[in-house]
Amino acid sequence: MQLVRNWFNKISIERIQLELMNTAYGSGHVFLSALDPRCMILWYLFFAIAPWFLSNMIVLAGLFLLMIATTVLSRVSPFIIFVLCLGLVGQVGWLFILSLFFGGDIASALPLLKLTLKLSIVSLASITVFSGMDPERISDGLLALGMPAAFSFSLSYGYRILPVLFEEFRSVLLSYRLRGRAPASPGFLYARLGAYYLKMLVVAFFPLMLATAKRSRTTVEALETRGFSFGMKNPKSRQLKLSHLKVTRRDIAFLSGTAAYAALLFWIGAAYPLAI
């Protein structure tokens, strides 16, 4: 209850905006973002796929440790980690409790723990790569690996337009509040106040849609005058955009280091097949 009250008091749209902007733009130039994005994505692909085919607890635990290390290196905001933990505990924890009802026992916890490990490895890998890296670099990496140019453009455009959208949304919400009436009492479990804000959130998209429609027209027209559609069909443009991507010794060291570590894990795993 207190939590809900705090939420309503503390959370203002400005606050949310700030938090989100911190998350979105705050990722500094940490160690991992200096690596070549293509290498990072390949690295990620391995760790996103491999765990599903593994069942050795030692290997999984080892990979998990590696992921923790890289996550720490990439200095992800604690907020993201928190969300991740919440999701994992929620999903798997309830699975476990429910399975008890259906005749499971404590033994069923182990496979589920393994599932949690797998999920964590995959999630942490994606957090390491995609949160630690500058989004521009991600999009360059994806472009280099063959994603359509529209995607990489949209990503950087998203970064550009987010603050603008937020400003607009804020003023629309403000208009609703300045001319609306909040419920006199917050209601049971703050339900009435919550409903008031939720409804406002939905209704606010009506003016926002119209305003955004107006904006996208100028944007698309301006894109045309700046040779965007021309560039999309121009292989030279793509080549130039990606010319700054270079695989350096640091990348090779990183990839081979992880590979060596993984190999070591597999070797240990093979020696002690703890496949519970």
Binding site: T23, A24, I80, S126, P135, G158, L162
Partner: peptide
């Protein structure tokens, strides 16, 4: 882009 990548919750292949 907004909900995943920018919030750092991009799940990759998922």
């Amino acid at each position: 882009i907004f909900g995943e990548l920018m919030l750092g919750q991009f799940g990759g292949l998922g």
